[in-house]
Design a protein around this nucleic acid. Structure first.
Lengths: 225, 225
DNA sequence: GTAAATTACTTTACACCGTAAAGCTGGCGT
DNA sequence: ACGCCAGCTTTACGGTGTAAAGTAATTTAC
């Protein structure tokens, strides 16, 4: 009752602002310019509006960032219940999480650092936890595996982004006189951490967690029957 | 030759600025006020100096942050080579990493998000990789386990910090009408993720990685002999 | 011993930031 | 027809990082 239909109202004036349009523009700005490139004034300019206009839709900049965050987590998909075994669904979830991170390297930092407890997000958790329940895990074990998977995925997202980001100022680690340096083990490892190999590194770690879950799931389901 | 002894010079004037003193004050400021509480002017005030004085020791604010970052990673200890088996040393390293995160919740975000490739840091990597080598891992496997452990630890640091941070504005998730809500699985899991239980959650995930390393190490060392 | 150079810091200034507060303005309900 | 008010703009304030120039003391050069 307090909010009228903002839908069909722009008939001859310009398109009015909406939370959606603002968050769209904000995410686009962050994707292209980086997190520090997002200012209320720049965001206003992108929307052909004065900065203060945004404050009629969001209380402050933090709320805009929360909107962007919500967009990001919405991109992560857990396959629907019947589509594949529970373990495979979790594996897809983890991969989807990582793909989201790589699509939004500048914005991703928001995900593990900004806390958000919206109702919608609780629903997401509930969905995920159903999958753990299918594996036979109780609350304690679900909590542990949920966090283990989340730790791994968010750490991988951050680290991979940092690995891929080539900052122009930094020394490009010239291999010329680095090859016979004092750090032979580093040299042996570096090629395996190039951008093209990070997928395999991620899959390696993910597999370790998945195998542990498989074992515990079999034990839990057997005991239960 | 270009830098004279800046050590004994303050005989009647005040203590002169040094990079160390600046980074000290910066870390202290971040610890007590948060990352966004660190500004060049506030940092100057803390050092009883004008903000611009700092620029005679650091090119810009980013370099100061890099200094703080260096301080943080210096707090993480890998036990010396003879002190205990390689696997135990890595376990201690992981715990030490986590403890550092919990000691500096406001500054920790710098660690997984800021890239830094100082010589000193390469030396640290080399040290760590020696431990993996002891386990019989080649470059590829070292790379994979190194990253898996790092992913897990940095993700855990971030998530635990976010979990512990109670922001005063947020709804304190009133359990009154939440208990018989639509999210029973969330309710079953939440108590296991309270601050007091996060140590156990971390150890759980760490153990999964350690056990995988143990298996692979035994296989690698056996094959080698 | 004096002049020049260097070092360590301050002063001033600029363009940007988030946002509080007040002003405008056109379409709507009555 | 009138007033309201949602949606946007204007102005302003105190903060930010830092470029550029100024100042004072110490060190160096001859």
């Amino acid at each position: 009752m307090q909010k009228k239909s903002t839908t069909r109202k722009a008939h001859k004036t310009r398109e009015p602002l909406t939370r959606d349009r603002i968050v769209d523009a904000a995410l686009q700005l962050v994707d292209s310019e980086g997190l520090e490139g997002l200012s209320m004034r720049r965001l206003g300019t992108a929307l052909r509006v004065e900065a203060m206009a945004i404050y009629h839709h969001f209380a402050n900049k933090g709320e805009v960032l929360d909107g962007v965050l919500e967009r990001l987590v919405d991109e992560v998909v857990l396959p629907p219940k019947g589509s594949m075994p529970a373990l495979e669904r979790l594996r897809h979830f983890a991969r989807s999480y990582r793909q989201m991170a790589l699509r939004h390297p500048n914005a991703f930092i928001l995900v593990p650092s900004r806390r958000f407890s919206t109702d919608r997000n609780f629903a997401r958790y509930e969905n995920l936890l159903e999958t753990f329940q299918e594996l036979g895990f109780d609350g304690a074990l679900s909590a542990r595996y949920f966090r283990t998977l989340a730790y791994f995925c968010s750490g991988a997202g951050l680290a991979d982004i940092a690995s891929r980001a080539q900052q122009p100022d930094a020394t490009p680690v010239v291999m010329e006189d680095f090859n016979n340096s004092q750090y032979p083990l580093v040299i042996a490892v570096v090629p395996h951490l190039r951008a093209g190999n990070l997928d395999a590194v991620f899959e390696f770690g993910l597999e370790i967690i998945m195998q542990a879950m498989t074992r515990d799931s079999e034990a839990a389901l057997k005991q239960r029957s």
